[in-house]
Design a protein around this nucleic acid. Structure first.
Lengths: 222, 222
DNA sequence: ATATATTTTTAGATAAGTCTAAATATTTAT
DNA sequence: ATAAATATTTAGACTTATCTAAAAATATAT
């Protein structure tokens, strides 16, 4: 058991894992196709294969969900991705908007000893450079109290603990606004018209956050 | 140009590079098949492909050699392999006999920025944990005076600077003999019958090195 | 120099992952 | 409840990298 999977198989499992995080239900073929940026027909082919291997539970026209073994594999890939991202930022000095694509490759290096030694080397971090929780060697996530910044009321203050979008363009935008993990965000005003937020950043400067931006910002109330 | 190559293409280029290091001539299809542990027929197919891409010069029945672009790619893969091995040993505490297979995977991660930052992080090492020279970012190797230990005369002393075999079983054997990079080896006697060497290790203990072992030990005369 | 052995290439198949177009199932709307 | 819209699967084809078996070229030995 725990046979070696191809990069593609691992990517499909990861996609199902992430899609299921949102919907909490069996994931549709179309949704997986979107995540994988491929055609629904290709997804169907792969679902049959992963199903035969016992990694997912798949029913024609009903969607797919991870088996416990598939879930273990997906979690392992996510662990590798997040530990490598942490390494790239903390040790090699990359900035957070440049590490995603490199980690997409590194997450498929198979050695468990490697990733466990890396974990140790980094001091067993609980969160990666985007604030996502890093599963431990036994697959456990460390969760925390967090809300989307727009859920704060006027007058309340939050500290940025994570971002829901990892695209370079989004993170570059945050860099321009001097927003990074640990930044404090105080709500000055909320527009009910366009859902934008007028905020005070680090008690230093005022800016407007569009809904497109704010919906991707996770904060801890402070 | 400098299009992204598949793992397999990179491995073929590396095989041709290494085979050519020995023969200095065009490399035969059979020899590449041995290096790649595959069939000559598969090699022929790949030679046509690499030739079309301008990475090798291939003539039917005459063998293959790297073009300057192919040589650049091969050197880049070797650089990655050796830097990752250095990282695994120096930073993650792996011992030298366990790093080869992991580095075989890591060498195919494509980011040049990654490998250059890693190089910097490691302090621009000139040699890897097996004593092989690490090409710099511009492809230059740092060579050094070295001979095979059996070329020393009785009474002479050498310091181990490299090994020509990276197999776990060979390196494990050296570990048992307490031989590692930097170990001093003094020649006490040489058998002309089986080419074995009686040696003194680190002025500490005497052992017999079979030809099978000694032909893989590179030393600097001291 | 000619037969034999060796090396290399060609021919035809297979498996993984992908595609488009067509067929089928399910959902939604009236 | 039936038609229309949407989602999913099937069918058939393509690419990459591999294989075995057979054919062709080259090298070797007497």
């Amino acid at each position: 058991m725990t046979a070696t999977l191809t990069h593609t198989e691992e990517n499909y499992l990861k996609a199902i894992y992430k899609a299921n995080e949102k919907t909490k239900e069996a994931v549709s073929t179309n949704m997986i196709a979107q995540y994988m940026n491929t055609s629904p027909a290709s997804v169907t082919d792969m679902m049959k294969k992963l199903s035969t291997k016992g990694l997912i539970i798949y029913e024609r026209y009903k969607g797919s969900r991870l088996s416990s073994e598939g879930s273990k594999s997906a979690t392992s890939v996510i662990r590798k991705h997040r530990l490598w991202e942490t390494f790239l930022v903390q040790k090699l000095g990359f900035s957070w908007e440049k590490v995603h694509d490199i980690a997409e490759e590194l997450e498929h290096i198979h050695s468990e000893e490697l990733i466990n030694r890396l974990d140790d080397y980094l001091g067993f971090p609980k969160y990666d450079p985007h604030g996502d929780p890093i599963p431990s060697a036994d697959g456990k996530f460390t969760l925390r109290e967090q809300i989307i910044v727009s859920q704060l009321n006027i007058g309340e203050v939050g500290v940025l603990v994570g971002v829901k979008n990892h695209e370079t363009s989004f993170l570059d935008h945050l860099n321009k606004c001097h927003i990074s993990l640990g930044t404090s965000i105080a709500i000055l005003d909320k527009s009910s018209f366009d859902k934008s937020l007028q905020v005070h950043i680090d008690n230093d400067h005022q800016i407007l956050l569009t809904h497109e931006v704010s919906k991707n910002l996770l904060v801890r109330k402070s």
